[in-house]
Amino acid sequence: MRIAAATVLLVGALALTGCTAAGADSASGTPAPTTANTDSPDASSSEATVVSSVTAIVPTDLNEETISAETTRIAAAVQALIDPALIINVDDHAQFVDKTESVGRYYGILRPITLEPSVDAVRAATEIVSILESSGWINRDVATEADPFLSGLVSSKDDATSWFLAIVGDTSVAGQSVLSIQLASPDIP
């Protein structure tokens, strides 16, 4: 149920992110922003560090403090996959979401990131998802047929200790390039 609730929030986020930046038309040939440096002599070491940094670590004690800290760390690690020079604005929203009949209390982050208009956010999102998958995230659903690109991932098969992460790349508005990170923690006992 958390996935369904997060998807509903994501639809609202997409409506907002379409209006966050202005600029020139997107250029689809622009390299996607990641920190992996394949030209470096120690690229495999650098890539291993990137992969391990986005891996979710389940705290021993699941409480508001540990869950919010790990959720914030994961969101920052995913954002760090984007070259900071390509970021125009980060609109960060984080909060505890109260328990409902179908969803337990959790910590959620919605982080639309406005990129330079020349960045292909769909390609960048695709590459970020690839890095997440190589670090152990499980891709549950992906919409690649059209812009925006959307991928829903979970950090493990255990729902009780799994984070839900949606990565969205949106270039559907001419001159705007937006990548969104939406993250929901496991339920807080």
Rank of each mutant, 00 (worst) to 15 (best):
D39N: 13
S118K: 15
G108P: 02
A6Q: 11
G29Y: 05
S44L: 11
V173G: 01
S130G: 12
A80H: 03
A6L: 14
P112R: 06
Y107K: 14
D187C: 13
I109E: 02
L110N: 15
A56N: 07
S134F: 04
A121V: 11
N37H: 06
D98G: 13
T144K: 03
S53Q: 10
P148K: 10
V11M: 11
D158G: 01
S28N: 13
I74Y: 00
H93Y: 02
A77I: 09
W163A: 05
R140G: 02
T126A: 04
S156N: 13
S52R: 14
K99P: 04
T114V: 08
T7V: 10
I131Y: 01
A85K: 12
T49F: 03
E133Q: 15
D39S: 13
T126H: 05
S53N: 15
T126N: 13
D61C: 05
L10V: 12
G18A: 07
A146L: 04
A121T: 13
P41F: 05
A174N: 02
P148T: 07
K157G: 07
K99G: 08
L86W: 12
S28G: 11
V122D: 09
A15S: 10
L14R: 14
A146M: 04
V173A: 03
T114W: 03
V90H: 05
E101L: 13
T72P: 02
V178W: 01
S180W: 05
E47Y: 10
T144V: 08
S26I: 07
L153I: 04
